[in-house]
């Protein structure tokens, strides 16, 4: 989780990722950011995102993003 947090902070510093649950809804992460973030996460966690994973629910908070990574690591 710390690794994920550091990736997010490198992308957009100054956001409280522990509590924020509206990263997409509040346009903190735009569609260009999502593409860069996916690239970083794939490299860092050895997972592969597909278009079906790119939904606001998965990117709105650090927690939901972490759950998505765990699910992808599990090969679901």
């Amino acid at each position: 989780m710390e690794k994920l947090k550091s990736i997010l902070e490198a992308m957009h510093p100054g956001v409280d990722y522990d509590t924020c649950t509206t990263l997409i809804d509040d346009h903190i992460l735009g569609s260009f950011d999502v593409i860069n973030l996916v690239s970083d996460l794939e490299d860092a966690f050895d997972v592969e995102f597909s278009p079906v994973d790119i939904v606001p629910e998965n990117f709105n908070s650090m927690q939901s993003l972490w759950q998505t990574i765990l699910r992808l690591q599990d090969g679901e």
């Binding site: 490198a10 860069n36 794939e42 995102f49 790119i54």
Partner: peptide, 29 residues
Amino acid sequence: IFYPVSMSGFAKKLNRNGRKRLGPVYGGI
């Protein structure tokens, strides 16, 4: 269209190479 193209192998490779060469701000463009 946008996300499927962005998630294609070609776009992901382009993104990685771009960010290596142009840095994190403009590399993903």
